[in-house]
Nucleic acid binder design. Sequence first.
DNA 1: GAGCACTGC
Length: 664
Amino acid sequence: MAAPLSTMKFWKPGSEAPGISEEREVTTETTLSPIIFNPYTALSIEKQRQKLPVFKHRNNILYLVENYQTVIIVGETGCGKTTQIPQYLLEAGWAAEGKVIGVTQPRRVAAISVANRLAEERGALLGHEVGYTIRFDDCSDPHATRIKFLTDGMLVREMMADPLLKKYSVLMLDEAHERTLYTDIAIGLLKKIQKKRRDLRLIVASATLDAKKFQEFFNLNETGDPNQDTCGILTVEGRTFPVDVFYTVSPVPDYVKATVETVLKIHETEDDGDVLAFLTGQEEVEKVVSMLQEQARALGRYAMKKHLKVLPMYAGLPYVDQMKVFERTPPTVRKVVVATNIAETSITINGIVFVIDCAFVKLRAYNPRTAIESLVVTPISKASASQRAGRAGRNRAGKCFRLYTEEDFEKLPASTVPEMQRTNLAPVILQLKALGIDNVLRFSFLSPPPAQSMVQALELLYALGGLDQYGRLTDPMGFRMAEFPLSPMFAKMLLESGNFGCSKEIVTIAAMMQIQNIFVVPSNQKKPAVGVPCTHHTHLTVTVREQLRRLMNKFKVPRTSSEGDPDVILRCIVSGFFANAARIHHSGSYRTLRDDRELHIHPNSVLFGEKPPKWVVFNEVVQTSKYYMRDVTAVESSWLVELAPHFYKQAKHGSLASKRSRVL
DNA sequence: GAGCACTGC
């Protein structure tokens, strides 16, 4: 059967295409592909540096950093800001007297790859003058490193040991427009530090859209006299190629099918160039891949001059399969990458000329009333749409096919809600308290989270014993919980495990549960035997376990083993996760103890399909077609009352009721 | 019998 002729109709709005000049994106050139360096001579490196768009702003940038506490740099893609600005600062003496220039990145791969690039450019060995620090991997020298790349989460950690970040003279927050949780935490804390350290300089690299918001946030000038502003702003043009944007003529009823049709239309009517399609999740990706592979086989039989190579890409995909999307293809083959949002910021695939955008993304949402976090398919923002379109213009002029009308595009929100406003705040509050922010309600959040989320977080932390009745961090429990790189519930469970006599087992359990996608296998493959994660994950688990073990030793939690007694371990789990408890309902589903919400056992759980236990605790809830509990453990109701008497009370008829815990 | 966006310490 030949491929059906595509019925997709697109329209290019206006006489002038909304080219890349309005559709600029700002991102690090992060890539998972092998890093290949050119054997530059010293002279050509200098010439290369001077050709970057940021170079002609060099003196202006140095002037602004000299004269303003904070400088907002609107640096468009390909302008060279990430590698060049730290070097300008170094050359101007900002790393003298042992001071360090720090550059944060939201993601680890970005921190590593940018540090690598810069070390290579300077002909230096990574870890000396130029280094990086991420969790589990500190490739920097406390004396020699002058330019340090680190994740923004790591910067927040460093504040615990050095609250004023004294070793840094300048900090550059890269990709600040992404508004990740840790970027936002760092931003609020840095504003506070700046009031105590007038010498500390801050550079915030952002997209056009948010520049004004950042400037207003960091400007400490209250006189109204612009001469006394403490925050400057500068735009550096980028170097990308124009992308023509096309919209559908009418709304698309099924974007999965529409994606398949659009790929085929591109394949039939467009010249060379690879395709990147954005979808929301693994299931959709695999569906489109299999539909396209079928079409590709049909096309192959009809000897189309160009072949289609269709590849899936999502975080849960095994590493070897992920690597395939970076492989070069011969000119007779057109590569089609069908991806989740992972391809929007986290990875960059070379050679993409055509982008297909379904307008949706799966996002984490937090319900502050029920304290349930869930994953919800949501329309993307305009900023996200430009970011996706920009993926077509990295190597040459490209095209972006939006599977929605221009009117619908106009209805999209300008930018995505910052993570701070759609997450469980308990870990954030715990961190802030540990950093000496007593009144978290008055903390200067760039985007304040909902008050109800704050209340939920404070109540949970109080119930866990991390806060006292006045909302102060408890000593030692609260301080210790904050030091664990885990959620407060996990931290509590670990810290209690010595008392329960099962710390060895609990450390292993906690470490394993931090590794995501352990048993994730694409639906068209066989499932591995339960409890047998692959070698890669085993390795990661060992690393996490070592870090946890070190903290356990630091806090002198005795190393004990339950010696095969399961109840001890289950009771210990309850001591951390009692707030996430549910009881069986006569319908066969579960109801939360907190507010009688309907929940189901996740199909991936070992308890799924078994005789359902009466009482369970769980790690988290994912909302897909239903609310599913993940990481479910069968417990006894008496343990809940015994281990969390401040949270539950024994009600009449042997049932349980939750108390409202109060924090002043 | 139905399912796992993406980061980070």
